[in-house]
């Protein structure tokens, strides 16, 4: 069954927060994406970084249940929606692994930052479809829609 492609807007400040969280960390970093949703358009206005509690942080991430519950309560209290999760892939492409897919939840956008040599080289976002496979979201910057950073192009080369 075909599904409408999600559009994810990230403004420059959010991108910078994500970059600073991920770029200099050799471990996978992770956190939540909050904002607003209007039909198939999701605007991220806030991120909540959380601890990665995976045993092997260089190759995996895991978020504690207490942090999940806190993020959901924060969203409710602040009239935001919990729209997804971000995590980094140090020295790996911004493509979800099979481990990512098996653990993925419906509805959420999974934003992945690829990090190489202390730089975020690519940002892509994915959502699970009804067949439990990932579809890629269309990623855009709210500062300048023309400077889109969709996953088929390297970021930040095409987003000045």
């Amino acid at each position: 069954m075909s599904q409408n492609k999600l559009i994810l807007f990230l403004d420059r400040a959010i991108i910078e927060q994500l970059e600073s969280a991920a770029a200099y960390n050799t471990d996978e970093v992770c956190g939540f994406l909050l904002g607003h949703e209007d039909k198939f358009v999701r605007t991220i206005t806030r991120i909540i970084p959380v601890d990665n509690i995976a045993a092997d942080k260089k190759d995996a991430f895991q978020i504690a249940s207490k942090d999940y519950l806190k993020a959901e309560r924060f969203a409710d209290v602040n009239n935001l929606q919990l729209l997804g999760v971000y995590h980094s892939h140090p020295n790996c492409p911004a493509i979800p692994s099979e481990q990512d897919r098996l653990a993925a939840q419906p509805y959420f956008s999974y934003l992945i930052l690829s990090v190489t040599d202390k730089k975020v080289t690519s940002i892509r976002s994915w959502s699970l479809n009804d067949s439990f496979q990932f579809d890629e979201d269309f990623l855009m910057s709210t500062n300048n829609i023309n400077q889109h950073i969709n996953g088929y192009r390297n970021y930040p080369n095409t987003a000045a």
């Binding site: 991430f61 999940y68 979800p96 653990a103």
Partner: peptide
């Protein structure tokens, strides 16, 4: 009763 999805994943290795 809180239902809490486990949020986890791993790196993509070619």
């Amino acid at each position: 009763v809180s239902i809490v999805p486990a949020i986890a994943g791993g790196a993509y290795r070619i």
